[in-house]
Amino acid sequence: MTTFKLIINGKTLKGEITIEAVDAAEAEKIFKQYANDNGIDGEWTYDDATKTFTVTE
């Protein structure tokens, strides 16, 4: 398992979430479901060097 981080730069929600996932594809699926569940819709980026996803509304 690898640790992945999501940085949320939303209009109403900001913060960071860290999860353990098998790979970046699994982490992205989990993070996008979390964002969808919380009404966050924005532009996604991923930095493989730091294993960090960012979503900006």
Score class of each variant (00 low, 15 high):
L6Q: 00
K32R: 05
K32Q: 08
T45I: 07
T18C: 02
A24C: 02
F53D: 00
N9V: 11
Q33N: 01
T56W: 04
N36S: 07
T3S: 08
T52M: 10
D37P: 02
E43P: 08
I30L: 08
D47G: 12
Q33P: 05
W44N: 00
K32T: 09
T12A: 09
N36P: 03
I40A: 08
F53N: 00
T54V: 06
K11A: 04
N36F: 15
I40W: 11
K5Q: 09
K5P: 01
T18F: 07
G15A: 14
E28F: 12
F31G: 15
E16I: 10
K51V: 09
V55G: 01
E43N: 12
D48I: 06
E26T: 10
K32W: 08
W44C: 01
A25Y: 15
D41N: 14
A35V: 10
E57Q: 15
I30E: 02
K11L: 07
T50N: 09
K51L: 07
V22N: 11
W44V: 13
E43T: 14
K14I: 08
F31M: 08
E57K: 08
K5W: 15
D48K: 02
N38G: 04
N38T: 07
D41K: 05
I17V: 10
Y34W: 07
Q33W: 03
Y34M: 14
D47L: 09
K32V: 05
G42D: 02
F4P: 00
A25Q: 11
K5I: 05
A24F: 14
K29Y: 09
T56A: 04
D41I: 09
F4H: 09
E43F: 02
N38F: 13
A21F: 03
E43K: 09
T56E: 13
E20C: 03
F53G: 00
Y34P: 00
D41S: 10
A49N: 09
T56Q: 05
A35Y: 01
L6P: 00
T2L: 11
K51D: 02
E20L: 04
A49D: 13
D37L: 09
D23K: 08
K32I: 05
A49V: 11
A35M: 03
T12Q: 07
E26G: 12
A24E: 04
E28G: 15
E20Y: 02
V55S: 04
D23F: 08
G15S: 12
T18W: 12
T12P: 07
